[in-house]
Computed example of a mutant assay.
Amino acid sequence: MTTLVSETGVGPLLRDWRERRRMSQLDLALRADSSARHISFIETGRSRPSEEMILRLSEHLEIPVREQNALLVAGGFAPRFSATDLDDPSMSTLREGMQQLLHGYEPYPAVIVDGAYNIVAANLGMTRLIEGVPEHLLTPPLNGMRITLHPEGMARRIRNFCEWRGHLLHQMERQMALARSEALRQVYDEVAAYPLPEGCDDLEGTEETPARYPYFALPMVIEHRGQMLTFISSICTFNTPMDVTVAELAIEAFLPADPATVDYLRSLTS
């Protein structure tokens, strides 16, 4: 016997996520130890999935924990994952750990951002890198994409701005394809609409642009106090997060890409 549920329930949402992941009903059924028939019944509303089934399908569909909460609510269950404010006392260990990571990376720039690239914390190296950005771009909440791509922000000093802009926009597009985020969509629409410098077009920075730099990844080349600095960006996230806030945090570290950049940054601390 099946239990009928509304078309606005969890079934259509799960189907949408499965299609986003380009996975067939059979593929998902095999991974989740179910049957294609059962997956079909869930998606069409002929069967109501249990809380365990929603979480199991979410795991194999790699659905972010914020969206898993939405699926549980749509299925008639309570949210499973909390969304704790970083200022909450229970987050003190996390805050201390993040500060240690940022401090340990000195003198190189590092920053922690949330899912919409709002800056949660930054080290002194990053503070130095963004010096000169006008006050109106530094009004909380500070947004890394806005500071980087705004014509009055770091964009003025990034010497390969066209390529770097293309890389950042493509990065946000990939994230939006994997998870719904209205906040990220708003940031993307804003920064993508900023006027382009002369000679810069939307193709630059994509895979269609031949590599012009002798590095293993696209660098950011930026001027700082008359010195040309070159960085490779690396992003890491927390493994198996059980809180929405933690799941959406990312630590971005800028690795010096040449000895001159290393020497210059070390000279600032001495």
Rank of each mutant, 00 (worst) to 15 (best):
T2A: 04
T3A: 06
S6I: 01
G11F: 00
P12A: 00
L14E: 09
L14C: 11
R15E: 00
D16N: 08
W17R: 14
R21L: 14
L28H: 11
A36M: 08
I39V: 15
G45T: 05
R46W: 05
R46S: 04
E51Q: 14
M53G: 11
L61G: 08
E62F: 02
P64G: 14
E67A: 15
Q68P: 07
Q68W: 12
G76N: 04
F77C: 01
F77Y: 15
F77H: 03
A78D: 13
A78K: 10
P79R: 11
S82Y: 06
S82I: 03
L86M: 03
L86R: 01
D87G: 08
P89G: 08
L94V: 08
E96Y: 06
M98S: 04
E106R: 09
I112T: 00
V113E: 01
D114I: 02
N118C: 00
I119A: 12
A121C: 05
A121V: 10
A122Q: 01
G125E: 02
T127Y: 01
L138A: 08
T139E: 13
L149Y: 03
H150S: 10
H150T: 11
G153V: 12
M154A: 00
A155L: 12
R156N: 05
I158D: 09
I158Q: 09
I158G: 10
I158T: 09
N160T: 10
C162Q: 08
R165S: 03
H167V: 07
E173P: 02
R174T: 04
M176R: 01
A177R: 13
V187W: 12
A193P: 10
A193R: 13
Y194T: 07
L203Y: 06
T206M: 02
T206R: 07
E207P: 02
A211H: 14
R212C: 08
A217R: 14
E223H: 09
H224Y: 07
R225W: 06
R225Q: 12
G226T: 05
M228L: 15
M228G: 02
T230I: 14
F231P: 01
S234V: 13
F238A: 01
M242P: 03
D243A: 09
D243Q: 09
V244G: 05
E248G: 12
I251N: 04
A253I: 15
F254M: 12
P259V: 03
A260G: 12
V262P: 05
S270W: 09
